[in-house]
Amino acid sequence: MAEKTEGIGNRYELNKNLAQMLKGGVIMDVTTPEQAKIAEEAGACAVMALERIPADIRAAGGVARMSDPAMIRGIQEAVSIPVMAKCRIGHIVEAQLLQAIEIDYIDESEVLSPADDVYHIDKRKFAVPFVCGARDLGEALRRISEGAAMIRTKGEPGTGDVVQAVHHMRKINQQMAAIASLREDELFEAAKKYQVPYDLVAYVHEHKKLPVVNFAAGGVATPADAALMMQLGAEGVFVGSGIFKSGNPAKRASAIVQAVTNYEDAELIARLSENLGEAMVGINADEIQLLMAERGR
């Protein structure tokens, strides 16, 4: 009889593996069990359970915290796909609560108000996996050294403006290409410059990619936005406010899912983009006061 083998290192590998299973997929923000079901039926590979989508957090102002565990449980019961939820940056106890209700992935997220203005959570102490946002390679590798098993761009959440997600994805890829082009004896200086551990720089140098899966997030609102992020090298896409702030969420969600699978087929994406109804209204990322992406470096 085969025996289960367990250990923290092993757990981290299993957690990175779950992100690998999400690749090529769309993770959708949902606020109710009904929305979660619509998302699952439209082809979401996971849902992010939260009380308010980023656009509404932005509109409401005030302190945004982890969602009510009862609300998250309701969504866990409604769907069979993985359920993620957000905790505040540095809020160790919110993360512990999410682990206690057996969440599949914790997003230590800049969308919520940070609980700690210096430190992120030591994610290596947890058995459940974490995904974290990053604007550049330094942030991405710092989050990975803290134990993140998946990375996403920060973008500018709740805006429906994809410009920041594009900026972050390009920057991470440019910085990885730059590291890949260095001589081996130059990697020590690169680790210093990016303020990250040498081993992670050496990994990027050898593999020309992050050691974990990297999704796009922040401002994705249309099938074309999602396909754009895939063409720029994202391994999958988070769609936050873009779906349930639009006129026909089920149709738009399904179109975005197909656009991510066939992100290079412009004819298909053109057909998918027909008659989707109102897209979320959107705010230009440079017209807003609160830059969530600035939170947690």
Binding site: A2, E3, K4, T5, L14, N17, L18, Q99, E102
Partner: peptide, 25 residues
């Protein structure tokens, strides 16, 4: 169960022999 139930095991696959098994949800 959920991700906390994911596990690794060592087992034998018929015709192959000992093989590292990874179960993810």
């Amino acid at each position: 169960g959920r991700q906390l139930g994911s596990f690794a095991a060592d087992g034998a696959v018929a015709g192959i022999g000992d093989y590292p098994l990874r179960f993810i949800r």
